[in-house]
Design a binder for these strands. Structure first.
Lengths: 128, 128
DNA sequence: TTCTCATTTCGATAGTTGCGAAAATGATAC
DNA sequence: GTATCATTTTCGCAACTATCGAAATGAGAA
């Protein structure tokens, strides 16, 4: 019966004639497994959905940099830069190295960069 | 002189001693080319930074679906579903096919799905 | 101590988002 | 024609989020 939680009563009979029980059930089943990973994937994409953070990643692709120099590349305050770096660090994409007063950041691995370049290439190559 | 717009005067002499002119200049030059593509890339990631839209894409990976069935898979109203579909369509990732009153959506190509699966795999495989 | 680079906390503002309600569209059926 | 149906669109909002400045705090260097 009630497969749809949001529409408690007569959802499948009266309100939504086009609703195909079987198909929807099938799709839901197929999605069930992948569904668990979607929040993490979405968080990942949210993190990358920002030009400042993308710029940081591309800058660090050139080698490690101190916060101050990153800030100058971004033309941003060190506080704001530090905040963005923290977001990237929190999801495990950056490593830091302390050297006296300075802190140097670098990419934790090349995997992210590879994915990023792959996506960019896909965007550039598509027709429409 | 004034390379940094946000810090009009004496930015490079007094306020920011750690600032390495050469390095920053190098990085900026290296980024110049890729920088133009970043807004588009960020828009792409923003679009994917949402579990509902990711779910739509995975659902359509199974084959074309009408709005109504997608809405049921998502447990969302048709209006809300239509809105999300439009966002995906606007960036060229979906095609639609009219059949009488119904409208069927499908993935415009498999490229997006491939990229998505690639990113997901990368997330799953990383150590940290 | 004092200076410096970096981080963190707080706060505010600006901006975005996701969706409901309702009107509009466009096709079918009667 | 009218009625109905699936979808789209417009409007608007309430809630959430993001980004950053200012200032306090850490932590190392001199």
């Amino acid at each position: 019966m009630k497969k749809v939680a949001a529409l408690p009563t007569k959802a499948d009979v009266c309100n939504v004639p086009c609703f195909d029980h079987n198909k929807v059930g099938q799709i839901k089943a197929a999605l069930a497994k992948e569904e668990k990973k979607l929040p993490e994937l979405a968080e990942f994409y949210k993190l990358l959905g920002n030009t400042t953070r993308l710029k940081i990643l591309l800058a660090l692709a050139q080698g490690e940099l101190c916060v101050c120099d990153i800030a100058h590349v971004l033309q941003l305050s060190t506080a704001a830069t530090s905040h963005q770096l923290k977001l990237l660090r929190n999801q495990g994409w950056l490593s830091k190295r302390d050297d006296g007063k300075m802190v140097y950041y670098r990419l934790h691995s090349q995997d992210l960069l590879k994915a990023l370049k792959g996506d960019l290439k896909m965007l550039e190559e598509r027709l429409g």
